[in-house]
């Protein structure tokens, strides 16, 4: 009988210990420990999700800190003035958390991300002006915003971007690619009022377009490979 009780006690103790350690693993929050090449788990998944949200691609979000995640972290660190070491330490994670947080009103109540239009704008910039200089990307975003202000065009970002045949990137599906970090930044900048296009309503690549209509528009300036026109 005595042996029996001792046996049970042991089982319970081991069970308790196991459940404590395991739950520690399962619920480890992002920022509790340094993450680097080879790290695995739900924290890495969370990290990857935040990177993707800010436009740093990690391949698939799989909870494994591989070479792509490391490269994304490096790019994030470079573009945010952090020491570039490819490790997700306190500083890096703090900055990631801050930038992916929701907006708040004056009394601190969360009111959502407030970036729905910026997000679609960033997708359009990414699809239309990938590989263009950054200022050319801001200009492409500004063209879409200029169209909203123009009486001859629809009045929302979605209506303009998805206007049939308006953008070739919608027809070939590139619009659905996740936007890059620089496209997101360009969209944010255009939304706050920058317009390097000089009030343009159209843009095209002179080397690739023979469309008469677009060539007939008064030209404003060329930035990178894009000609911006009225």
């Amino acid at each position: 009988m005595k042996v029996h009780i001792r046996h049970w006690r042991m089982v319970i103790t081991i069970g308790l210990l196991l459940s404590i350690t395991l739950s520690g693993f399962a619920y480890a929050a992002l920022g509790d420990r340094l993450l680097g090449r080879g790290s695995k788990g739900s924290e890495v998944t969370e990290l990857q999700k935040k990177l993707v949200q800010l436009g740093y691609t990690v391949g698939t979000v799989d909870g494994k800190y591989g070479s792509k995640t490391e490269a994304a972290i490096r790019r994030f660190q470079k573009e945010h003035g952090l020491r570039v070491d490819g490790l997700a330490g306190t500083q890096t994670i703090k900055e990631l958390k801050r930038l992916t947080g929701q907006s708040t009103n004056a009394s601190g109540k969360a009111v959502g991300y407030k970036n729905i239009d910026t997000n679609l704008l960033a997708r359009a910039v990414n699809a239309e002006a990938r590989g263009e200089p950054y200022i050319g990307q801001v200009a492409v975003a500004a063209v879409i915003l200029n169209r909203i202000a123009d009486p001859a065009f629809p009045k929302t970002v979605a209506d303009i971007v998805y206007q049939p045949r308006a953008f070739s990137s919608v027809d070939d599906g590139q619009i659905n690619l996740p936007p890059s970090a620089s496209a997101i930044r360009a969209a944010q900048e255009a939304v706050t009022g920058s317009d390097p296009s000089g009030g343009a309503l159209f843009f095209f690549n002179p080397a690739k377009t023979s469309n008469k209509y677009i060539w007939s528009r008064p030209q404003i300036k060329q930035i990178g490979n894009h000609m911006f026109t009225k």
Binding site: P151, A152, F153, P154, K155, Q163, R165
Partner: peptide, 30 residues
């Protein structure tokens, strides 16, 4: 006129040019 403009923007079009139909709808609505 706003509703008509939204529908108009969804009809497949040939050209990406300025649309006078759109302009007309915007102006009359405004």
């Amino acid at each position: 006129s706003e509703a008509a403009l939204k529908d108009f923007a969804q009809i497949p079009a040939q050209q990406t040019g300025l649309s006078y139909v759109g302009q007309f709808l915007t102006q009359s609505g405004e």
